[in-house]
Design a protein around this nucleic acid. Sequence first.
DNA 1: TCGGAAGCGGAATTACGCTTCCTCTTAGCG
DNA 2: CGCTAAGAGGAAGCGTAATTCCGCTTCCGA
Lengths: 210, 210
Amino acid sequence: MPDNQRPLRADARRNRERIMAAAGELFAQHGHGAQMEDIAAHAGLGMGTLYRHFPSKQALLAAMVGERFRGMAELVRTAERIADPGKAFEAALRGYLEAADGDATFQLALMGTDDLRWDLVQEQKAEFAEAVRGIIDRAVAAGRVRADLTVADFTILARGVLSTMYFNAGGNADWRRHLELVLDSVRVPAATSTTAPVSPPARPGAGRRR
Amino acid sequence: MPDNQRPLRADARRNRERIMAAAGELFAQHGHGAQMEDIAAHAGLGMGTLYRHFPSKQALLAAMVGERFRGMAELVRTAERIADPGKAFEAALRGYLEAADGDATFQLALMGTDDLRWDLVQEQKAEFAEAVRGIIDRAVAAGRVRADLTVADFTILARGVLSTMYFNAGGNADWRRHLELVLDSVRVPAATSTTAPVSPPARPGAGRRR
DNA sequence: TCGGAAGCGGAATTACGCTTCCTCTTAGCG
DNA sequence: CGCTAAGAGGAAGCGTAATTCCGCTTCCGA
């Protein structure tokens, strides 16, 4: 755990940066499948060095994901500065997805893959969730999105779009379309109640959670 | 390729069944991660036998997925018998997801994982898509779902819900909620047009595809 | 300028699954 | 009933990546 004990030698700090950069690039490209050896090579360093800085692939991945969560929280907080609560919400969701576009690490992270040890990014994730809660509460209070919308919904819906993004080798048209559909289901002019179940009887109490 | 040449010895047919059953169970449970050895053991057979019937893990997985697609196509066709086009559509989507619940093979398959050689299930997939097209066309014609809805949308939206299902260890409340949100974005009482983009300028022509 | 702790490199080790190979067994026709 | 090709079993072989090890090099405080 290269944390904050002794200040970290100058070259070491430099190399750590390099690793993060290389890992960011390769994870973004190949997701969890990126190989340690390639990352080391890409950073112009040896395996030993890589493992000195991050004791395992999991640790490296977690570091990257944590960084991304931080960035996203920041982004959401920025959106919060938009005056109109409805537009702020929309901007947050849009910005979030836009940022994830082309970054497999983040897509995976946000989708909740079990290739990641979530306990290592608890904190950053919570920070992000907090930022989102703020924006949603405001939009709900202003009546700009359906009244029953929660942070969990944001996660669910965003993950849905992410999955379109992730599994579609093709361009980005698909996920943008998906996003539009999602926004239509969430904005207030849209219907708020659901019609009665049709074929498989929806078990009672299946509606809300958390 | 144990296809249809010589009739296949009685015990062989029996064993093939067993393998399919075991694989179905284990893939459902562990997805692509299920191990060949476990599958063989679970079927009460040796590795050699397993490989006699399916030349590779890919082949086995493809066989399972193909079977699932067939089943889904059948299910959708059944839904098509519902008189009300809107309800038929809803039943198809509901039934589809209900069937995928708890079956990781199918979830993965439908999500489009690249752990699967799609060329091996082309046919079954096309069959399924065809069935879906029928139901959507009817619902659109009847004005019960947004006019611009396509088969691609069905795939996109269903995959979104699937991702909620797949990545949520917890119960099934989340994906059912997601499904309701999706239905709200698709049924006709909901808004059909999208409002103007807010923050990241939506590139022109990002709306429709295929 | 020196000493030695911190850092680096990268080959060797390990672990883990899929796949192959070869021998033994059995269904089922004549 | 006897033969033989189809089928079964499962241990060994392989490839792939993560991780470890340890001798060499470089920073940096005195």
